[in-house]
Simulated assay, not measured.
Amino acid sequence: MWITNAYAQAPGATADPTGGLMQLLPLILMFVVIWFLMIRPQMKRAKEHKQMLEALKVGDEVLTQGGIIGIVRAIDDQFVTVEIAKGVEVVVQKPTILAVLVKGTVKHL
């Protein structure tokens, strides 16, 4: 005959005792490392930035993401008016405020 007989294996004879968990372990460890090295610090910075924007008040000296330094003259829900020179005011979106500077950084506008 040309065809050989095929016999079934005994059930459970070659079953993995860990249930395949050892195959997923490297993937799980990689996710944990990425979480602690990348995602968690980014969430912390985002939370600090949100708190800084909530504490923003008129008269604060700020730095925008575009590199503009000025004094806050008005605050809206989404926008901030920043005076960058005497009589020159620009309106920027609130999230573009990068940092609140120490008082006295901007001497004379």
Score class of each variant (00 low, 15 high):
residue 95 P to Y: 06
residue 8 A to H: 10
residue 36 F to R: 04
residue 43 M to H: 05
residue 18 T to P: 00
residue 64 T to L: 12
residue 30 M to E: 05
residue 18 T to W: 08
residue 2 W to M: 14
residue 95 P to M: 08
residue 25 L to M: 08
residue 58 V to E: 06
residue 85 A to D: 09
residue 12 G to Y: 01
residue 93 Q to F: 09
residue 32 V to A: 12
residue 10 A to N: 11
residue 67 G to Y: 03
residue 87 G to Q: 04
residue 4 T to K: 13
residue 30 M to K: 04
residue 58 V to K: 02
residue 66 G to A: 15
residue 95 P to F: 09
residue 95 P to Q: 08
residue 35 W to D: 14
residue 31 F to G: 13
residue 72 V to N: 02
residue 32 V to N: 03
residue 3 I to V: 14
residue 89 E to G: 05
residue 33 V to M: 05
residue 92 V to F: 06
residue 81 T to G: 08
residue 42 Q to D: 11
residue 43 M to G: 09
residue 71 I to P: 00
residue 45 R to H: 10
residue 74 A to W: 03
residue 40 R to N: 09
residue 33 V to W: 00
residue 34 I to Q: 02
residue 38 M to W: 06
residue 3 I to T: 13
residue 90 V to R: 06
residue 67 G to I: 05
residue 47 K to V: 11
residue 63 L to E: 12
residue 19 G to S: 03
residue 105 T to E: 04
residue 66 G to H: 10
residue 63 L to H: 02
residue 85 A to Y: 02
residue 33 V to N: 03
residue 39 I to T: 09
residue 73 R to L: 10
residue 51 Q to W: 02
residue 43 M to K: 07
residue 83 E to W: 00
residue 43 M to T: 07
residue 43 M to A: 12
residue 29 L to E: 11
residue 97 I to Y: 04
residue 16 D to M: 06
residue 59 G to C: 04
residue 82 V to K: 03
residue 41 P to V: 03
residue 107 K to R: 11
residue 92 V to C: 09
residue 55 A to F: 01
residue 99 A to M: 12
residue 90 V to Y: 08
residue 65 Q to E: 15
residue 13 A to M: 08
residue 35 W to M: 11
residue 82 V to F: 04
residue 83 E to V: 01
residue 46 A to V: 02
residue 75 I to T: 07
residue 76 D to M: 12
residue 95 P to C: 11
residue 107 K to H: 07
residue 25 L to I: 04
residue 61 E to F: 03
residue 16 D to S: 10
residue 22 M to W: 05
residue 77 D to P: 01
residue 38 M to H: 02
residue 5 N to R: 14
residue 98 L to N: 13
residue 59 G to K: 01
residue 103 K to N: 13
residue 1 M to C: 13
residue 100 V to W: 01
residue 54 E to Q: 13
residue 53 L to T: 06
residue 105 T to N: 02
residue 55 A to M: 07
residue 52 M to Y: 04
residue 80 V to W: 03
residue 63 L to F: 02
residue 46 A to L: 04
residue 94 K to W: 04
residue 38 M to L: 12
residue 65 Q to M: 15
residue 14 T to A: 13
residue 12 G to L: 06
residue 72 V to L: 04
residue 82 V to P: 02
residue 103 K to E: 14
residue 41 P to E: 06
residue 74 A to Y: 05
